[in-house]
């Protein structure tokens, strides 16, 4: 039990971020009208593309002669970029369509 409290104490900043972000994530989209469900899903999809930053860090730390790790990291960067670029562009195209209807 004591080790659990120690863990909380040592990581309190991150734990605060997580808990507050959960509440924030729920509050911030709380009143979304149902026509915007799909674009919002798509926008959120683009935002979790932030995982690309992890891929860049992995890639940037690999030894230049460790080919397996290089290839895996390279793939991760490509896939992450696809998620970010494709995600934001698809969302933009969806929302563009909304404008035209009006």
């Amino acid at each position: 039990m004591e080790s659990f409290f120690d863990w909380v104490h040592n990581n309190h900043a991150i734990i605060y971020i997580v808990i507050l972000s959960i509440f924030l994530g729920i509050e911030v989209i709380g009143r979304v009208p149902s026509v915007l469900h799909t674009p919002l899903m798509s926008g959120a999809n683009a935002i979790h593309g932030v995982v690309i930053i992890g891929a860049i860090i992995v890639m940037g730390r690999v030894d230049p002669d460790n080919y397996i790790a290089l290839i895996i990291g390279f793939l991760a960067v490509i896939l992450g970029t696809l998620n970010v670029v494709g995600g934001f562009m698809v969302t933009d195209r969806m929302l563009e369509m909304f404008k035209k209807k009006k």
Binding site: I17, V18, S21, I22, F23, L24, G25, I26, V28, I29, L40, A44, N45, I47, H48, V50, V51
Partner: peptide, 8 residues
Amino acid sequence: GGILVGAA
């Protein structure tokens, strides 16, 4: 970013 999307 991750937690926000997870919750939202």
